[in-house]
Design a protein around this nucleic acid. Structure first.
Lengths: 287, 287
DNA sequence: ATTATTCTGAAAATTATTCTTCTCAGATTT
DNA sequence: AAATCTGAGAAGAATAATTTTCAGAATAAT
């Protein structure tokens, strides 16, 4: 069977030049509709010149733009006439039962349900807590969620001062709690199987009067009894393990929300960080 | 709001003449795709003359065929870009413009596009590489992707032996490469801004003959030139940072796939791990 | 850092296609 | 029989696509 334009593009993507990749991205982005207008319009949308478009469609193996467009049209038509049949196959290059499709199905459902049941007031309250620099912020997670907590910590550090990551996995964490006061806030990730040491940590933090925020699964960590704010996420997946994507989504959204709330300060912090990166040559100069 | 072409046609259907009705039927039949070709093609499909088509689109209130076609195009676009009703609000307790909804929109689109453009053969090849215990597995990431690499490492450790996490953020990583041979595989996460040290690491690994697997963003890390397998993810988000959710999804799916591929061995490893947990009382007994 | 190579976009000329409109004879409807 | 509709054909207008040229930009190579 002949390749779709999409497949062809992906196949030769590596051999494309800068402007062509830019164009290819735009085509793939809103595939296949973006290619349905005139060549000029597509060129404009991708911010490249018409000759670039003309050159590329020929690279893709079409005799010219009209032929390319015709191919696209047929693809749309095919998809339209198969109304809902195929629409749940995320990776069209794999069969419906492929783990890619099954797993993505589950994750999408998790996200949908997590969002549907979220209490946006709690979310906003948490955003406010995290944005408040007067409160020191402690972040911690369990065995599985450690990576998430680290990810949040990394970003929060850029956004604001006084952020600390507590390695719940080490047994030295009580040291980290020495300075904690009732003005502070602790954000804890905890999913099944809920860990004892994390619960202890929450209890101690509570005793010190800190605000406790919890990101947990739908069955809820026992920490929720101490939590001032708590967000529940769906974590089921067709796997021996749970999926923490919904938690990651909430974490990234929190990052975006806090960052938005204190953009003035964040911006200058980011610039400072950039400067330091420049000096240490960590990143490549271009791209 | 303005009527769709479909509605307009239905509205004036009774006042149409024979040939026009014939045409109208054809348009409605395979709506809206039938109108996407040239006026000649539509005329042929409906077995009417081109002047008839031209006359009718004007009756419908369009200035001419191109305008009519444009209207159709917009309608398709609207339908197409929301296969799952994009304009649904994910968190109904929050307004549509709330960051929760905006961010989730973007993430869903990222996932959809990542999956749509994924090469499932590459994915399967990577699964096979990771499942092959004869190959030692090295995992590493950059500043932002470090958490992801750690997450993958944690799970891979449970699934198989000979897994190592390289802290790309430290400068001691060359030590970790000492034992690397050409039977081994290195999985690297790298998104913009691509880091120099990660690139060096890839070069050295390549020189030692190891297989290189890359999980990168849509603009592709320069490492892709060395990679034997590479997966591209969309990472755009309405935020000052990128979203690594799509990468996380692929990572979790990889975990599920590898685990499925070697379930026999994984199962006993998991039991052993459980036993150890029991002995150390890390988890709560119930729940 | 310098040079060589490749890529890119603007402009324009050329060609191709598509759309609109017109005419009028024949078909269809009233 | 009269009025209306329709399609073939074709001419002209409008739009679109292709191709070329060339200078400047980006990239790769030295």
């Amino acid at each position: 069977m002949k390749d779709t334009a999409q497949e062809t593009i992906n196949k030769i993507y590596d051999s494309l030049t800068r402007a062509e990749r830019q164009l290819a991205s735009v085509i793939l982005e809103n595939y296949p509709m973006s290619g349905m207008g005139s060549i000029t319009r597509l060129a404009e949308k991708a911010s490249v010149s018409t000759p670039t478009v003309a050159r590329m469609v020929q690279k893709l193996g079409y005799s010219g733009f009209p032929e390319f467009q015709d191919a696209l049209r047929q693809e749309v038509e095919a998809r339209f006439s198969n109304p809902i049949a195929k629409h749940e196959s995320w990776a069209q290059s794999a069969p419906e039962a492929h783990i890619l499709n099954r797993f993505t199905d589950a994750v999408m459902a998790n996200i949908r349900q997590t969002l549907a049941n979220i209490d946006s007031d709690q979310f906003d309250a948490l955003t406010a807590l995290l944005a408040d620099e007067k409160r020191a912020l402690y972040i911690t997670g369990g065995r599985i969620t450690h990576a998430l907590s680290e990810y949040l910590h990394l970003h929060m550090q850029v956004i604001r001062a006084r952020v600390r990551h507590i390695r719940g996995t080490s047994n030295a964490w009580p040291h980290d709690l020495l300075d904690m006061s009732e003005a502070d806030v602790v954000l804890i990730y905890d999913i099944r199987r809920y860990e004892n040491s994390t619960l202890r940590l929450a209890e101690i933090a509570k005793a010190r009067g800190a605000k406790i925020a919890l990101i947990t699964d739908q069955w809820q960590s026992p920490i929720s009894q101490y939590a001032d704010v708590s967000l529940k996420c769906r974590i089921e997946a067709p796997s021996a393990w749970d999926s923490t994507i919904a938690m990651m989504l909430l974490s990234e959204t929190l990052i975006a929300a806090v960052q938005e709330a204190r953009w003035d300060q964040t911006e200058s912090r980011m610039h400072t960080l950039e400067d330091m990166f420049d000096q240490t040559k960590i990143f490549r100069k271009f791209v």
